[in-house]
């Protein structure tokens, strides 16, 4: 607890959140009403029927369980990689002296501007030659590779406030650079690592462009559900179902991981100089 919160805070934030969630409510309502009714907007009350038709159609037509499994595999692996490697890199960039440090950092961080469509065609050729098309690694490798730009930045940014005397004390004690990372920095960087996990999971779970180009049979949820929307019809009820199905999992991840935001704070206490 940070302190004595004035009573108005919870209602204020609550009111804000309720306004914020209006489009999401719309999404849910859209998925539960027939298209002929939502033509005048999902809020229209001229006729009001609730139906699970769209949910049933999506459930029947698409092998959701299998796609769910593929999505989970892709998102979990592509999330774990930066959760492990980004703190290591951030530590190296922030606490160690070596040549090309700044150059490398600039290169890595600037890669964030790179849009996905730039990566697609060169990688497509490479994956074909390596026989990686329709292999989930064809998606995981770029998902991980493209995440370092912001993940390294994010972790390094938190390390800037890291208590230096802890590092120094360890050094005096004869602790090598790797040990300092594993025993001192890593256990205290749970907050940024959790943030990396949440964001990367969400982005890879929702990623569409790379999976639809690189994967064929092993399609993740997003790629499978992207087929729902045709070019010539706008079956928004089913699209809404798809959107809800795909959004729920990252939200769970958010709820689970955000606990570490407070946990990280406890170990760190009493170290500001």
């Amino acid at each position: 607890m940070i302190g004595r919160a004035p009573g108005w805070i919870v209602p204020l934030v609550g009111a804000f959140a309720l306004i914020w969630i209006v489009p999401i409510v719309g999404l849910v309502v859209t998925s539960l009403r027939p298209i002929s009714e939502i033509i005048l907007g999902w809020w229209s009350l001229q006729e009001f029927t609730l139906t699970l038709d769209a949910w049933i159609v999506v459930w029947d037509k698409y092998p959701l369980a299998y796609a769910f499994w593929i999505s989970t595999k892709i998102a979990v692996i592509s999330t774990i990689i930066p959760m492990l490697l980004a703190p290591a890199a951030a530590y190296a960039f922030h606490f160690l002296k070596f040549r090309f440090r700044r150059l490398l950092l600039i290169l890595i961080i600037n890669a964030f501007v790179l849009p996905n469509q730039v990566v697609i065609i060169p990688l497509f050729r490479l994956w074909r030659e390596l026989g990686l098309i329709d292999n989930i690694w064809s998606v995981i490798i770029p998902f991980a590779g493209l995440s370092f730009a912001w993940a390294v930045f994010l972790v390094k940014n938190y390390l800037e406030d890291f208590p230096n005397e802890l590092i120094e004390a360890a050094q005096v004690d004869g602790c090598g650079p790797l040990a300092r990372f594993f025993y001192i920095v890593l256990p205290n960087a749970l907050t940024p690592i959790a943030a990396v996990g949440i964001l990367q999971f969400m982005w890879t779970w929702n990623g569409l462009l790379l999976p639809v180009v690189f994967l064929r049979d092993e399609l993740p949820l997003t790629a499978l559900l992207a087929r729902i929307q045709g070019v010539y019809d706008r079956n928004w009820d089913q699209v809404a179902v798809a959107a809800i199905i795909t959004t729920i999992v990252p939200l769970m991840i958010f709820i689970v991981f955000q606990r570490y935001f407070t946990a990280g704070a406890q170990t760190k206490s009493g170290s500001k100089e």
């Binding site: 697609i120 569409l208 180009v213 087929r227």
Partner: peptide
């Protein structure tokens, strides 16, 4: 199944160019 936002031709070309 090529797919890209906006225009199917983008996805088709990516598939063809990729060989």
């Amino acid at each position: 199944i090529p797919q890209a936002s906006g225009d199917a031709r983008g996805g088709i070309r990516a598939v063809l160019m990729g060989g």
